[in-house]
């Protein structure tokens, strides 16, 4: 709930998610979860905008047009310019890159580490490995997010890479929690029992039976966490400890624009709008995926 709380705040293991991944197509998603399908389309558009930014953007996002400070949206500056004469439209496009880059990297780094810890811990539940790992996770969660983020920024300096490191630390416990919970459940299930009885190695059991079953809940958590990371990145940049200037970032644009809110509202409206729309899409997709993967719910 706090503004840079990418931690476990709003993502708790979805209770109804069960594994049935992979065997359903987008057509079915569209039919059963129209909102989610729309969200998926929006996300594809965002990704395309980010990927193709160099081709779409009419201007260099850091170029300062010194004949056009705070230009009103129109031609040639579709969304106007900021206080240094930079084209907002181009910056919003490149800002999508920053946001997506940070979110993807954080998810991959934090998600994988959290998952590995959760899976190992869940598999050895009750053992000393589990206890040790979970106490470390508790410790991580018991530190206020802002302290972790400030520490990383002060230790390593603000940069995209360091933002990813800091945010990863905050999402690790979330993924740990989800995958450990799932792992506990899977472990108890019969097929693992029988696999063990038939003499499979630990690693083999995990790989063959654990991971595939984990994918569905992880996918849901990932899409929801994605949204939170995007907001957290913008809050960090707003505070000046995220993406360093002049690289465009929606949060930094909001921070710059907040000083001109009454004079040049376009400085906050467009990046704020893009941010909200992007986050909304990921949240809706996450919701839809949750329902989609829930066998009970979809049969109703």
């Amino acid at each position: 709930m706090s503004e840079i709380d990418a931690g476990p705040a709003t993502v708790v293991a979805p209770p109804a998610v069960r594994a049935r991944a992979g065997r359903r197509g987008f057509g079915r998603l569209l039919r059963t979860q129209p909102l989610g399908a729309i969200a998926a389309v929006v996300i594809v558009l965002f990704v395309a905008a980010a990927a193709l930014a160099p081709f779409i953007a009419p201007f260099d996002p850091t170029a300062q047009h010194r004949d056009a400070f705070l230009a009103v949206p129109g031609s040639p500056y579709l969304m106007g310019t900021d206080d240094l004469g930079r084209d907002i439209f181009s910056r919003v496009l490149y800002g999508a890159r920053t946001s997506l880059l940070v979110a993807v990297c954080t998810l991959v780094a934090g998600g994988v580490i959290g998952m590995v810890i959760g899976v190992v811990s869940g598999y050895y539940a009750g053992g000393w490995v589990d206890t040790l790992l979970q106490r470390i996770m508790d410790t991580l969660m018991a530190i206020p997010g802002i302290v972790l983020l400030l520490f990383i920024a002060a230790l390593l300096g603000p940069s995209i890479r360091n933002t990813v490191i800091a945010l990863s630390l905050l999402v690790i416990p979330t993924f740990n929690r989800v995958s450990r919970g799932e792992m506990l459940r899977i472990r108890e299930e019969l097929y693992v029992e029988s696999a063990r009885a038939s003499g499979c190695s630990t690693w083999r059991i995990l790989r063959r039976h654990g991971l595939p079953n984990l994918l569905a809940p992880i996918l849901v958590v990932a899409s929801l966490t994605f949204a939170i990371i995007i907001i957290a990145e913008s809050a960090l940049s707003f505070l000046g400890i995220g993406t360093p200037p002049p690289t465009p970032s929606w949060g930094a644009m909001l921070s710059d624009g907040s000083r001109y809110m009454e004079i040049a509202p376009w400085m906050v409206v467009f990046p704020g709008g893009a941010l909200t729309l992007g986050v909304l899409a990921f949240n809706l997709l996450g919701d839809a995926l949750r329902d989609f993967f829930d066998p009970k719910q979809s049969t109703r």
């Binding site: 170029a63 240094l84 200037p245």
Partner: peptide, 27 residues
């Protein structure tokens, strides 16, 4: 914030003569 903006202005001006600066914003 103004000092960080000024630094970006300087960065842009120096880039025009070929001096490419990377900003290191420290606390």
């Amino acid at each position: 914030a103004n000092v960080v903006r000024e630094a970006q202005w300087v960065q842009e001006d120096l880039a025009k003569v070929g001096i490419k600066l990377e900003l290191d914003v420290q606390d």
